[in-house]
C-alpha cells in the first residue's frame, strides 16, 4: 500500500515543530523582540501562495475574483516581508557590546 503524500508533509511539519522548539529555546531573552519581528517576516512566505493565486486564472481575465484576492494578499505579505526584515535589521544594529576601553 502506498503512503499518502500528506503523511510526508505532516512528518515534515512535526519535525519542523521540534526544530523550532529547540532553536527558539536557545534564543537569548534579550533578542525576543527581534525574534517576534523576524518570525513575522518569515511567516509572510505565504506570499508564495498569493503569487500563484494572482497569476493563475481559468480565463483570459487576469482580474478574476480569485486573482484579486491573490493581489491583495501579495500587498499584505510584501508589507510584512519588507517591514519585518528591515525593522529586525534596524533593531539588531543597535545591539552593541561594551567598548573595551570602558572597562
Amino acid at each position: 500500500m502506498e503512503i499518502d503524500p500528506f503523511i510526508f508533509r505532516f512528518s515534515i511539519f512535526i519535525l519542523a515543530i521540534f526544530v523550532g522548539y529547540y532553536v527558539v529555546w536557545s534564543v537569548t531573552p534579550s533578542l525576543h523582540t527581534p525574534l517576534m519581528s523576524v518570525t513575522n517576516a518569515i511567516s509572510s512566505v505565504i506570499i508564495v501562495g498569493a503569487i500563484i493565486a494572482a497569476l493563475t486564472s481559468s480565463s483570459n481575465n487576469i482580474f478574476e475574483t480569485s486573482n484579486i484576492f491573490g493581489f491583495l494578499a501579495i500587498v499584505l505579505a510584501a508589507v510584512n516581508i519588507f517591514g519585518g526584515f528591515l525593522v529586525t535589521q534596524r533593531m539588531l544594529q543597535m545591539y552593541k557590546k561594551k567598548k573595551k576601553d570602558k572597562k
Partner: peptide, 30 residues
Amino acid sequence: MPELVAGFHSLVGLAAVFVAISAFLNPQAF
C-alpha cells in the same frame, strides 16, 4: 514596537485568509 508587531501579525492573518479564499474560488490553480 509592540503595536507594530501586533499590526504585522494581523497582516499575516489576513493574507492567509485571502490565499485560502482564492484557493477556494479557483482550486485548479493549486
